[in-house]
């Protein structure tokens, strides 16, 4: 691989990182797992002046639950950590379903959830997961921390809401208000291929009724799409064939796919609806 010439900084603390981002601004690019950035640099689609490698900053590789049940995933938490997490397996069915479907084992061992969300590739899986769970990102900049809701984080393909001097510190998933269930279904032509279509489904039920629902779509629009109306169709009542079918139809309508060598727009919409039926109706959604 022969990328363009670039500088390299390896801060050892968040303070040092902040001052580097302050100094380089737009010219800097943060290197976490590098599983999207490095291939882009290899192809010279990306040619940052400076790579700021955050792998030497201690304490960012966590994923942990606050006492109230809020889940926090740090900027250096690798996919593989989430894939093998007992915490997720026990309490976060959607995340546990999505983690092993991220790319391939090599990418999972290096890449990070936060980095993947920052990359804002509409075919990225984690952004849909965060949308479906109603999560947010925590950004750290010279003016301190701020939260950015999942729905506002991605501005379009490969564009996020971070300022040049900000870093995404963690992804946060709020505590559930009911019993969690959910799953992630993805159609890919091969392990590691970008999704032809993917659907993240998250439900919280209480007393036999759905109290919160989130549905988000991968690979069928310029960004990951929160299918809000589809999710809303499930809320306030027990899960039924009718409500699931309604959600499937609404989610398919919310998709904005383009036909390409992975399939026609009609096929992709059909896959979205099929996955919702499967994920919710056929017991593929795993209760936590």
């Amino acid at each position: 691989m022969y990328p363009s010439k670039f500088g390299y900084e390896a801060p050892r603390s968040l303070d040092e990182l902040s001052s580097l981002l302050n100094r380089y601004g737009d010219d800097a690019k943060i290197l976490a797992g590098g599983q999207s950035l490095v291939p882009m640099m290899k192809l010279r689609f990306a040619a940052p002046e400076v790579l700021v490698d955050i792998n030497g900053i201690p304490g960012l590789d966590y994923h942990r639950e606050d006492p109230d049940g809020t889940l926090r995933v740090g900027a250096l938490c690798r996919h593989v950590t989430l894939e093998r997490s007992a915490l997720l397996a026990a309490k976060h069915p959607l995340m546990a379903a999505a983690a092993p479907l991220i790319a391939d084992p090599m990418v999972r061992s290096r890449g990070t959830m936060v980095g993947s969300i920052c990359h804002s590739d509409p075919q990225g899986d984690w952004a849909s997961v965060l949308l479906a769970l109603g999560g947010h990102m925590v950004a750290l900049g010279p003016r301190g921390r701020r939260t950015i809701a999942a729905g506002h984080f991605s501005l379009g393909p490969f564009q996020n809401a971070l300022q040049p001097d900000e870093i995404a510190l963690e992804a946060v998933i709020p505590a559930p208000t009911g019993q969690r269930s959910g799953t992630y279904l993805k159609l890919e032509r091969r392990v590691g291929d970008f999704a032809t279509a993917g659907v993240a489904m998250a439900l919280e039920t209480s007393d036999g009724r759905v109290v919160r629902a989130g549905i988000a779509l991968t690979g069928v629009g310029p960004s990951n799409i929160a299918a809000t109306e589809a999710a809303q169709a499930l809320v306030g009542k027990p899960l039924s064939e009718e409500s699931i079918e309604q959600a499937a139809q609404l989610a398919a309508a919310a998709a904005q796919p383009r036909g390409d060598h992975r399939g026609s727009a009609a096929f992709k919409r059909h896959v979205v609806a099929t996955f919702i039926r499967r994920g919710l109706a056929r017991g593929e959604a795993v209760a936590a």
């Binding site: 159609l187 032509r189 032809t196 992975r262 399939g263 026609s264 096929f267 059909h270």
Partner: peptide, 8 residues
């Protein structure tokens, strides 16, 4: 014989 072709 991609999935979308079979579906079509």
């Amino acid at each position: 014989v991609l999935p979308d072709r079979v579906w079509t």
